[in-house]
């Protein structure tokens, strides 16, 4: 059976979504490589409390200095587990329940080398996601799952922010499958988290998409989340 490893950077995730994200992942991955970016809260203890978690810790935070160094470090630790496939996921992202049923068949094939998912940004709660402008989940797909090739050289762009969650070589035109399974992104659910993320990013990045985080309610378009159904076979 192909071995599926999740890789995840974390920092100060206590009191947010880390437990349910790890619970969700353990339903379909073989192990979870976590790079803790010098958390100052109980995040490492939470990680250690779950089976099949391989935890590494940075003594000093890397993300705020250079995200690409953080991603590259996480990558090295992940490929050391000799995975067949890698799922790159954040501590506030969860694939819907059907992934438990379908993950083995999704990766146990030689037809395609990567899988793209639609990512839904939940907004102000867990009942609705945002659809205006660049938030529209129906028109964009995120490549999060890809086949790891041990002989391949993998590189990361030298970008201090938004260097991407997967290496450049996994972003190339590869045989791709666009899955109907949806990713729930919970990072914008709480207004205080949205404000904090906005402030963090604004130090190093600007643009209309970032500014739209602070849009007044009348400018924000939401759609209700449609719960998925588990298939009866």
């Amino acid at each position: 059976m192909p071995r599926l490893t999740a890789m995840m950077p974390v920092r100060n995730e206590a009191g947010r979504y880390l437990e349910e994200v790890l619970e969700n992942l353990l339903g379909y991955v073989d192990d979870i490589v976590i790079l803790d970016d010098a958390s100052t809260d109980a995040t490492p203890d939470i990680c250690r409390s779950f089976p099949r978690v391989i935890l590494h810790r940075n003594p000093e935070p890397l993300f705020s200095l250079d995200e690409s160094v953080l991603r590259e470090t996480l990558w090295r630790l992940t490929v050391a587990t000799e995975p067949s496939w890698i799922l790159s996921v954040d501590a506030d992202e969860m694939l819907e329940e059907r992934m438990r049923q379908e993950a083995p068949a999704l990766i146990g094939q030689d037809e395609y080398d990567c899988v793209e998912f639609r990512l839904f940004d939940f907004w102000g709660g867990r009942t609705h996601y945002r659809v205006d402008g660049g938030w529209n989940p129906w028109a964009r797909r995120v490549r999060m799952l890809f086949r790891y090739r041990p002989g391949q050289v993998y590189t990361w762009p030298r970008q201090r922010l938004h260097c991407g969650r997967i290496p450049l070589e996994a972003r190339e035109p590869l045989p791709v499958y666009q899955s109907d399974l949806r990713v729930m992104h919970l990072g914008w659910v709480r207004p205080e988290d949205a404000r904090r993320k906005y402030e963090q990013y604004r130090e190093r990045w600007s643009g209309p998409h970032l500014e739209s985080v602070l849009d007044p309610p009348e400018k924000i378009r939401l759609e209700p989340w449609i719960p998925g159904k588990l298939l009866p076979y």
Partner: peptide, 21 residues
């Protein structure tokens, strides 16, 4: 695809999805 997902949600014992070949 969104509308089909919604339609399936509204009808019991109806499922909308797709699978690789």
């Amino acid at each position: 695809e969104r509308d089909m997902l919604r339609w399936a949600h509204e009808h019991p014992r109806a499922y909308y999805y797709w699978r690789p070949p």
